[in-house]
Simulated scan of single mutants.
Amino acid sequence: MEGNGLEKASYIFGTIHITCDATIDDGVKKALDQTSQVVLEIDMDDPEMMTKMMGGMYMKDGKKISDLVTEDELTTIDAMLTKEAGMPLKMVETMKPFFIISMLYPKMLDCPMQSFEQELIKIAQEQNEEILGLETIEDQLQVFEDIPYEDQVADLLRTAKDNLAYDKVTFAKMLELYKNEDINGMLDMMDDENNVSVAKHQDKLLHNRNKNWISKIGEYAKDQPTFFGVGAGHLAGDSGVINLLKEAGYKVTAVKN
């Protein structure tokens, strides 16, 4: 990322939040060496992050999962959670369905779960660099307040009905696309109508957030050369970060290892 008043280049790296192999390759390490701060979607070394996240994980107005599904559907969800997470639904019945699904992510992989964000944080700390965010944890949590609970619970029910089978196939496909650096393919996957929360609400999950990030990316990059790490699904398409930065006057070119 260059031009438009920037004295030095900044770099944008597309992450995948959950993966089998979060090894940082030499090209990415070089970009980290050439920058002096790391900016992720949120400031992940904020000591209050977990406390804030816990507060935003629960449905408002005393809602429970049982308010959103039939008795038979409730039984299906309870059976799946007991089997896959080792806990009955009663323990998490007031959580937003999205966060119940996210608890199951490690089960959707056929490997121990790793995180690019954690690896980037580790390198930033080794280099004594600041870790900052493009949005607050409150901003991110609001997304799952804006997506109707009914749509979230539809995804939870789909996950429960086939005991994670669909999710495992989908995760494997997403990881393969990421490995092949196919950000357009990753974006196309978000149109899958089986995943209601994503397919129906890309404006809330992607487009609105992307637009909000552009001025912040510019401010950070003008201040000092910056390494940005955001989900790869945010990069592609007309409303993706790459195109929006170009429209804002920046020169964005792919870095080949």
Results as ranks from 00 to 15, higher is better:
Gly86His: 07
Val198Ala: 10
Lys246His: 08
Asn208Ile: 00
Gln118Glu: 11
Gly3Ser: 01
Ile183Met: 11
Thr23Lys: 13
Pro47Arg: 14
Cys111Glu: 10
Leu141Ile: 09
Met113Ser: 07
Asp25Gln: 15
Asp146Ala: 13
Val28Ser: 06
Glu41Trp: 03
Gln114Ile: 03
Gln114Ser: 12
Gly231Ile: 06
Gly3Met: 00
Tyr11Leu: 06
Ile214Val: 11
Asn180Lys: 15
Asn180Asp: 13
Asp203Gly: 09
Phe144Asp: 02
Lys8Gln: 09
Asp238Phe: 00
Leu235Asn: 01
Ser10Trp: 01
Tyr58Gln: 10
Leu206Asn: 01
Val196Phe: 14
Leu89Gly: 00
Pro97Gly: 04
Val92Thr: 03
Ile123Pro: 03
Met113Val: 15
Glu119Tyr: 05
Gln224Asp: 08
Val241Ser: 01
Lys96Cys: 00
Val143Thr: 08
Val196Leu: 14
Lys179Asp: 14
Leu40Val: 08
Glu7Cys: 05
Lys60Arg: 12
Gly62Leu: 12
Gly231Tyr: 04
Leu156Ile: 08
Met44Thr: 13
Lys216Val: 08
Asn180Leu: 12
Leu156Arg: 01
Leu157Met: 11
Ala9Asn: 08
Phe98Glu: 01
Lys60Glu: 10
Leu109Gln: 06
Ala160Phe: 02
Lys64Asp: 03
Asn163Glu: 15
Phe116Glu: 01
Met87Asn: 06
Tyr11Met: 10
Met59Ile: 09
Ala22Val: 05
Gln34Arg: 09
Asn243Ala: 15
Met57Ser: 06
Lys211Asp: 07
Leu177Arg: 00
Met103Arg: 09
Thr170Lys: 12
Glu48Thr: 15
Asn4Ser: 07
Met49Arg: 15
Asp151Glu: 13
Lys107Met: 09
Gly62His: 14
Gly218Glu: 13
Gln114Thr: 15
Asp61Arg: 15
Tyr149Lys: 00
Gln114Trp: 02
Ile121Phe: 07
Ala22Asn: 05
Met59Ser: 08
Ala221Gln: 03
Lys216Tyr: 06
Pro112Leu: 05
Leu134Pro: 01
Glu176Thr: 08
Ile214His: 00
Ala254Cys: 09
Pro88Trp: 06
Ile137Pro: 02
Thr170His: 10
